[in-house]
Design a protein around this nucleic acid. Structure first.
Length: 489
RNA sequence: GGUCGGUUAACCGAGUGGCUAGGUAGCGGUCUGCAAAACCGUUUACGGCGGUUCGAAUCCGCCACCGACCUCCA
């Protein structure tokens, strides 16, 4: 199998040709959400970007196993001993079981991701279902001397690890500098060094989420689940690990340390990180309180929004920026995305009206080639879209009659949009399947006929009244050369 | 303070040492009974100051501003 896919590897800080370890198989692991509140716009970005990667790799013929974890064991709010588990905190606020919180927000997350037309990963493992694997992992680290136990908690010995391997290779950090810059936090007296991180934490009596272990009744450290689950499902070495850029340090750095210490070798070959969505120039995050949930976007129910934005508008908005750039949220940008998406989908719908000619004045193959080149160049979705908009212009010119296309070209044009817009970029026409379409079509035909009668008699007031009233009802009439079209606003 | 990244036209957002990114909005034209749509054309682009070069928005240096990470985070 051959491909020309080049991806930017955060580990080497270079664009590299993607070569899977065991063709045609590809192992892809992506950090999923901690489910303790509604999914927001920031969660949509990695979901859409890695969905694009999953779809593209699959399109290229690879057999991809896509694993995305769900963090549902809860972790300390801060690194202090008295820090409260964030899932538990929410549970107490809402007077429900911690796992009830998890279930509630997991359901919302899955629903939102389906609305965004992201495909479910092959495996969606939950940290709570892999406590044993995580404990086994800790045992290995203890046996190999990279971890130490204090009062029922187990910590990773970063300094010890750094003697043999290099801690900080992913985030470009140097341990000595880290020593000086790490914040002094409360309750760190158990650790040998402030930069050591927890593998297992002894639970305080009021900490509800806990599991038995040989060290204490407690819960696993945050970084551990990804190491344990990625290795379980994708093997000791696998191809791609993805996630948000904010996870680069410390999360992914710690993961590398754990896995490398346990296995004696590197586990991940390509690290891919998506950049953040910002709002007013600042990162959108739950902890900053400046987030807009996906349900709020889809419903328009938020102070800064003046209208709802459909899931596909959000998807298009995300795809219009390259994944390694920040993308700034604004209602103007979303409105532009909405219009652009409509234009694209409208052109695809209009493909069916085009009649082939004997000759062709347009070249579809070059567009197809450019779309592949764009995706191959570090998944450049905005460039792919720009070429598809060239295709839109071609479609509209064909309908206008200012261009001609032959039968094979028309077939290629259909395939171009089907492949790139629907299969790879994962967009879909949301207007389809609204129900009662037959009835609506029949009614519209009657109304349009009545208006045509008025027009034939040059009763412009009557025909305009029909058009205006329909407009008020949210239906736009367009008098085309070969008849009248209507669509919902 | 340390590490890393960004600054592109009205807005969003790509990109390259010399050749129109694209979307949205605006303006002019074509079409139309009018409108809408579409098509064609169009609007002080590349933070500032130097340098390298035949040529830089693109490479180098300095400065300014913004952001991310250094704590849970997509």
């Amino acid at each position: 199998m051959q491909n020309n896919l080049i991806i930017y590897n955060s580990l080497t800080k270079k664009k590299e040709l993607f070569k899977p370890l065991n063709e045609p198989f590809v192992g892809l692991y992506v950090c999923g959400p901690t489910v303790y509140s509604d999914a927001h716009l920031g969660h949509a970005r990695p979901a859409v970007i890695f969905d694009l990667l999953y779809r593209y790799l699959t399109h290229l013929g690879y057999k991809v196993r896509y694993v995305r974890n769900i963090t549902d064991v809860g972790h300390l709010e801060n690194d202090a001993d008295e820090g409260e588990d964030k899932i538990e905190k929410k549970a107490r606020l809402e007077h429900i079981e911690p796992m009830e919180v998890v279930q509630k927000y997991l359901n919302t997350y899955y629903r939102n991701m389906e609305q965004l037309n992201t495909l479910h990963p092959s495996i969606e493992p939950r940290a709570s279902g892999h406590i044993i694997e995580q404990q086994e992992f800790i045992k290995t680290l203890l046996e190999k001397g990279y971890a130490y136990e204090v009062n029922g908690s187990v910590y990773f010995d970063v300094a010890g690890y750094n003697e043999k391997y290099r801690y900080g290779k992913l985030s470009g950090r140097v341990l000595e500098e880290l020593q000086n810059n790490t914040r002094v936090l409360e309750g760190q007296d158990e650790k040998r060094n402030p930069f050591d991180f927890a593998l297992w934490k002894k639970a305080s009596p009021e900490h509800l989420m806990n599991w038995p272990s040989k060290w204490s009744t407690g819960y696993p450290g945050w970084h551990l689940e990804c190491s344990a689950m990625s290795i379980k499902y994708l093997g000791e070495e696998f191809d791609i690990h993805g996630g948000g850029m904010d996870l680069l340090f410390p999360h992914h750095e710690c993961e590398i340390a754990q896995s490398t210490a346990a296995l004696g070798k590197e586990s991940v070959r390509y690290w891919i990180h998506n950049n953040m969505i910002t709002i007013n120039g600042q990162k959108m995050a739950r902890s900053l309180g400046n987030f807009i949930t996906l349900d709020q976007l889809f419903s328009g129910n938020h102070l800064v929004l003046e209208q709802p934005y459909s899931p596909m508008t959000i998807r298009f908005f995300i795809l219009q920026a390259h994944y390694r750039s920040t993308v700034d949220f604004s209602k103007e940008a979303l409105q532009a995305a909405e219009k652009g998406l409509q234009k694209l989908l409208k052109a695809i719908e209009n493909l069916n009206k085009i009649k082939p000619c004997a000759s062709s004045t347009v070249d579809i193959d070059i567009l197809k080639k450019r779309c592949y080149e764009a995706l191959d160049d570090d998944l450049n979705s905005p460039i792919t879209l720009s070429h598809l908009f060239d295709g839109v212009r071609i479609v509209n010119s064909l309908i206008d009659g200012t261009a001609k296309i032959d039968e094979s070209g028309l077939k290629a044009l259909h395939e171009l949009f089907d492949t790139f817009v629907f299969d790879i970029l994962g967009l879909k026409d949301e207007s389809a399947g609204a129900g009662d379409e037959k009835l609506t079509d029949d009614l519209m035909k009657i109304i349009i006929d009545l208006r045509q009668d008025a027009k034939d008699k040059k009763e412009w007031a009557a025909s305009d009244k029909i058009r205006n009233e329909l407009k008020n009802a949210g239906i736009v009439l367009k008098d085309m050369k070969d008849g009248v079209e209507w669509e919902k606003e």
